[in-house]
Design a protein around this nucleic acid. Sequence first.
DNA 1: GATGATACGGAGTAAGCGTTCCGGTTGTCA
DNA 2: TGACAACCGGAACGCTTACTCCGTATCATC
Lengths: 217, 217
Amino acid sequence: MTSATEDRVERGLGAAGAEPPQAPPVQAVTERPLRADARRNIQKVLEAAEIVFASEGLAVPIDTIAARAGVGVGTVYRHFPTKEALFYAVVTAHLEKMVARAQELADSPEPTEALFTFMGEVVTLAAKKRDLQDEMARAGMCEPGFHASIKAQLNRAFALLLADAQAAGGVRSDVGPDDVTSLLMGACLASPGRSEPSPSMVSVIFDGLRARTPAAG
Amino acid sequence: MTSATEDRVERGLGAAGAEPPQAPPVQAVTERPLRADARRNIQKVLEAAEIVFASEGLAVPIDTIAARAGVGVGTVYRHFPTKEALFYAVVTAHLEKMVARAQELADSPEPTEALFTFMGEVVTLAAKKRDLQDEMARAGMCEPGFHASIKAQLNRAFALLLADAQAAGGVRSDVGPDDVTSLLMGACLASPGRSEPSPSMVSVIFDGLRARTPAAG
DNA sequence: GATGATACGGAGTAAGCGTTCCGGTTGTCA
DNA sequence: TGACAACCGGAACGCTTACTCCGTATCATC
């Protein structure tokens, strides 16, 4: 309990503020700044993790990331208490960008196009990022609280985008945010192996969302 | 080479004919019938595997399946050379049923409804079967030849169903079998955790496929 | 430059899981 | 019923991988 596990809590971390899944902020005491080499290494690890997780997914061994970053595994674990915490940091950074993008598009004068733009960008991004696909595939199962906070923000922003598009009459009104989220996730998870989503597939979904008269049996 | 590995090739196997991924039929010599207890155990293993793979997916340890079947792991490996071979047997059984269903529906006088019926049934089935989801998630990557033969049959049957629906004017003509397969797989992989697909989600996809005028940007 | 705190590296540890091995059991056939 | 082949069970093996430990190196401070 009093061993080296103590100083492995995240501190500044700059870019992707890596708040670990379930680490209550026990001691917010006198935190002195990190040493310069430590800051450098955190950055190197994050950059390596982003690349490696994107191409290999969560299943990649931590040694691969450490090697790519040019550090030892001990250094990785010094700054990220578990592999999942590192994954969390990387994925959170992506999700934060999505939230920002959704909020930016929410001010658009063309709500319907804004929604479709957002969805298209998400699908395109996810097609290239295996870690995002892994994260989507786990959504629902696994740790319930994992990523909960940032995902709640994303859901809110996305629901707003959808509501505006529906209010503008550009999207059928009999679908809820959860339905469209499922649709979006499905599009992201479809056709694994290719690095771009099928344009026809996306256009079918968009047309389905535009359909005025739900004519389903 | 000459040890007990030899007699682990599949023989009759009854229901789900488990042709292992890459086992060339080297010796089709004088195969005497299996002993009664062996036949019983194969059946028990297949039944247990179907249940366990469906709820846990491919990641489940083989011990779990053996325990559920009430046999030892050695018995499982006597009849299935690897865990993947067992998985293969179970998934193949599902895919064979899909092929049969697709062929049955191909004779329908309502090609469009036949296509949508098929797709709906697949999505509903996949929502309950984690092993099918796992298999779809791996499609494209992993061993290229895995399941290739049965999947080719399925693709052919599905392409026929689609072509008929398009010829009847019920489905837009600017989508190919691969696009619709992606869409279908996406629908199967979306919303993990729930045991039924969202009806709205499915209806959006169907409406998108019906759309006459592809109005995508 | 000396000194102590901080951080690094990577060998080592532990646990999970696929697969094998072999002593014991059971079915089959004469 | 006896004898042998076929089969069973599960302990043991080996590999992978997340994570820890500690001797060594580096940084910050005086």
